[in-house]
Design a binder for these strands. Structure first.
Lengths: 157, 157
DNA sequence: TGGATATTTATGGGCGTCAATGGGTCATAT
DNA sequence: ATATGACCCATTGACGCCCATAAATATCCA
């Protein structure tokens, strides 16, 4: 599976529908479920979204935590609040009212790639939150320790 | 995959298109995705560019950090701002407006090889930024500690 | 070695296709 | 009835594909 990168802003219509960017949708070709899993972020005022296969990874990771522990209990909120939203014929999803409310979404919706997941923002909120993050990266000169390349001649299935 | 070296200046047309130098494009032969990932540098007034396989290394490296952690959040800005720009039939890419703005690009665009990545500059800005850097390296006689060749040999200190 | 010719690369513009958007209809569930 | 969701269609505007030309490089031959 590929990666979600970059961002794109699309319109939310009266019916609560919004087109998922073509680039993002393209990564769902091999997915069983043609649609996204969406849940509120508990860090920022945005929604998190991913494919079914990644949601299964989350569930598996939760199982690694001690059964009935506080951590497992708290983090399970992700699964509890996640909605399964199928694409319509045109590649749109319907965002439920409570999701629109928690993310403060109005007429415009910004899709932001985060690798294996992507986020759904009110454009102005994104600029307010992430603009400073870019500045922090600049001033603190954050560096990322890169993994060694997996293999020299990267051949894929 | 080979390495990006040297530099070349090409024209940006009215549509925002610019040819990627043939030398650079040649390194994309074994890539799944025929195009580049471009994102603003947070060190200099230029754009960074790389192939898909390198961007996947970045994403994988981010995944080594805990999900939803602060570090992961800050460093994700690279992935969030990276746009996927495919080559057209002639080997050109379209540079989005905001990228042209952040790098101050006008009619001419300078491609600068940086090994696994390359940069995209306004030619004048490059001369202003990098000229002094070259002078500094010369006067301070900078040295680089080389990694040992991967072929196994003696390991004496 | 020089000059003519062929090949490749860069550049510019027209045009068809497709993604995004908005609205309508029908079935189902409340 | 009213709301919700799945599908269909029409519009528009951006993007990708195509071709035509120019510039640069390589190739060939006298």
């Amino acid at each position: 599976m590929g990666i979600f990168t970059g961002s794109q802003t699309n319109k939310l219509d009266k019916k609560g529908r919004v087109s998922v960017p073509r680039n993002f949708r393209a990564l769902f070709d091999q997915e069983k479920f043609q649609g996204v899993y969406v849940f509120p972020s508990f860090r920022v005022a945005a929604l998190e979204a991913c494919a079914e296969s990644f949601m299964e990874r989350i569930v598996d990771s939760l199982e690694d935590l001690p059964l009935f522990s506080d951590d497992q209990d708290d983090l399970s909120i992700i699964v509890e609040s996640a909605q399964r939203l199928p694409f319509d014929t045109e590649g749109r999803i319907v965002l439920p009212d409570d999701f629109r409310a928690t993310a403060g979404l109005k007429s415009d919706v910004k899709f932001v790639g985060r690798g294996r997941t992507f986020q759904i923002w009110h454009p102005a909120h994104y600029d307010a939150e992430r603009g400073p993050a870019f500045e922090r990266a600049k001033t603190r000169a954050l560096t990322l320790k890169l993994r060694r390349p997996s293999r020299a001649g990267d051949e894929e299935a």
